[in-house]
């Protein structure tokens, strides 16, 4: 049998792509499609028999499950705070360390370090800070505002989660912003300085417009990771007190593996999370396209 050149090329293409495709199909595609299927059943993970229930799980999750709705609202609150704070702090730090010459790399090393540490480890360390160290400092110095029920009071545990997340995440965005700042031609800032612009004007009218593409990336990276937040909450509060700080991913996790074992129902929630993340990405691609046209 002789193969035409085209057939041969197709066979070679498949041979090169096959190993990757195999692992990918088994551990990503199959679970993804399987999840969609299970989301329309009442499968409970233990009982091999289950029946189809259509969209009942979705309806229940979005109308009847106050814990899930609260988790979505709490996650939204978290996302908004993270997008604003994480990017603002990262840009601030990037601008400030770029203005240094000798201490630049030292500060960059320090600020990026938490990013290397798992948020599980970081979360436990911060738990020690919030429950042991801060009350101790408050007792010895009279800084009374430090002595709060950081983990036990929902308002303060939200702040604690934000502090942990920012501590772990700011360095990553800072690296991106530093790379963007280094791409700005220095003559732009020089001519702004000659024209009499002060530091703020130079930042607002020269630096910021020049790093807009990086800001877009930074905002969407934060959006994407914040909607999926899990470790920071798991290690610090476990979703508590009660379920006051439960986020979407934790709610899915507990629904499936801790509380009820309602796999089918939890799958529906998992698909809802997927739809949220996909929506963000579609918006992101739109925005980025428009920006490119303008530029």
């Amino acid at each position: 049998m002789t193969w035409t050149k085209k057939t041969k090329q197709t066979v070679i293409l498949l041979a090169f792509a096959f190993p990757a495709l195999l692992f990918y199909a088994v551990f990503v595609l199959a679970p993804a499609f399987g999840g969609v299927g299970y989301s329309m059943t009442d499968w409970n993970g233990l009982n091999p028999a289950y029946s189809r229930v259509g969209f009942a799980n979705y309806v229940e999750a979005l109308t009847d499950d106050s814990y899930f709705i609260d988790a979505i609202l709490f996650t939204l609150k978290y996302v908004v705070c993270m997008v604003v704070l994480q990017n603002a702090i990262a840009i601030g730090l990037a601008v400030l360390i770029e203005s240094r010459r000798r201490t630049k790399s030292l500060f960059r090393t320090i600020f990026f370090m938490p990013n290397m540490i798992s948020l599980i480890i970081g979360g436990f360390m911060w738990l020690f800070i919030f429950t042991k160290v801060l009350p101790d400092i408050a007792a010895h110095t009279g800084l009374r505002f430090l002595d709060q029920s950081w983990i036990g009071d929902p308002t303060y545990s939200f702040i604690a989660i934000l502090i942990l997340s920012l501590w772990g995440g700011v360095g990553y965005l800072m690296v991106i912003y530093v790379a963007a700042l280094q791409g700005i031609p220095s003559h732009l800032k020089e001519s702004a300085a000659i024209d009499g612009a002060n530091a703020w004007q130079s930042f607002r009218y020269v630096t910021l417009p020049m790093i807009y593409p990086a800001v877009t990336i930074g905002i969407f990276l934060t959006l994407n990771s914040s909607f999926k937040v899990f470790e920071a909450v798991y290690s610090l509060t476990g979703g508590g007190p009660g379920r006051a700080t439960q986020v979407i991913a934790l709610n899915i996790f507990e629904e499936a593996f801790a509380n009820s074992n309602r796999y089918g129902y939890a799958s529906a929630k998992a698909i809802i999370l997927f739809l949220i993340v996909m929506l963000i990405t579609v918006v992101q691609l739109r925005v980025m396209k428009n920006r490119e046209v303008e530029a």
Partner: peptide
Amino acid sequence: VFVLSMLIPFHSIMITLTRI
């Protein structure tokens, strides 16, 4: 197919992945 899957959050496949 490979690129599109980068959209899928891990939490969306973990339940079925555990079973598989």
